[in-house]
């Protein structure tokens, strides 16, 4: 701290010389704009770091074991998404098909795609489950009832999953290095803004949608007057 005084006595301060003001004050004023420049530099450097570099560092990019065309498969099946992603008899949701379910159609190589060949050789032939990276996988603490949304609320798959059903190939999977979750949960916008209902899948997004859907308003919580925790948590 004692250096502050010494600083003020720096003789060759140009600003001080020009204004002819007492040296101590002059030094303060002259370096004022200069100091502000540093402020700006610091500000923008941090902003760039936070807005641009940070998201790149935070997420690692992984690729699916095989490229898969939803569009191609949807054309070939009768019941749309539900042909492969269906509700089981007990009301639970099947999620990503198991190898056995794939084999129902892919007992042999059906086409000439390279991915199908890899699929067959690496997984069917070796009887290994495909380690799919699931974009919409929720944390373990979440109980998400597909039955309630598909049957109860008659919602479309796309409301939450977007147009993945029309995609020709699988986008790279981005994993949050800290939490281990898919980037789709937080959304691709690092600030958390979303344009479409399927852009983000955090708890707040669930509750936003539930707030809007007045018909199935949840107000069973005594504490929050909203949905009680156990509706969606386990």
């Amino acid at each position: 701290m004692s250096t502050v005084d010494e600083q003020a006595k720096v003789p060759d301060s140009p600003a001080g010389a020009e204004t002819g003001a007492p040296p101590a004050e002059a030094a303060d004023e002259s370096s004022g704009s200069f100091i502000f420049l540093f402020f700006i530099i610091g500000f923008f450097a941090a902003a760039i770091l936070g807005w641009v570099v940070f998201p790149k560092v935070l997420y690692s990019t992984q690729y699916q074991p095989i490229d898969f065309s939803h569009a191609e498969h949807v054309e070939m099946v009768d019941e749309g998404c539900e042909s492969c992603h269906y509700l089981r008899e007990d009301g639970s949701f099947s999620g990503v098909p198991t190898l056995a379910e794939c084999i129902d159609c892919h007992e042999e190589i059906n086409g000439d795609s390279e991915d199908e060949r890899i699929f067959y050789e690496e997984y069917v032939a070796k009887d290994r489950e495909v380690p799919w990276l699931v974009y919409s996988r929720q944390p373990d603490c979440v109980f998400f009832s597909h039955a309630a949304h598909i049957v109860g609320a008659e919602m479309e798959c796309a409301t939450c999953h977007g147009d993945i059903g029309e995609s020709d190939s699988l986008k790279p999977y981005q994993e949050n290095r800290i939490t281990g979750y898919s980037r789709d949960i937080w959304g691709y916008n690092i600030a958390g803004f979303k344009r479409n209902t399927w852009d983000r899948m955090k708890m707040d997004d669930c509750s936003d949608c539930h707030q809007e859907a007045g018909g199935v308003a949840h107000s069973s919580s005594v504490q929050t007057q909203r949905g009680a925790c156990f509706v969606c948590h386990k």
């Binding site: 107000s219 069973s220 919580s221 005594v222 929050t224 009680a228 925790c229 156990f230 509706v231 948590h233």
Partner: peptide
Amino acid sequence: TATDYSTETGIVSQIY
């Protein structure tokens, strides 16, 4: 609000 009372079920929940 990690624990809550639900008027739908009467259950006291606990969200770990």
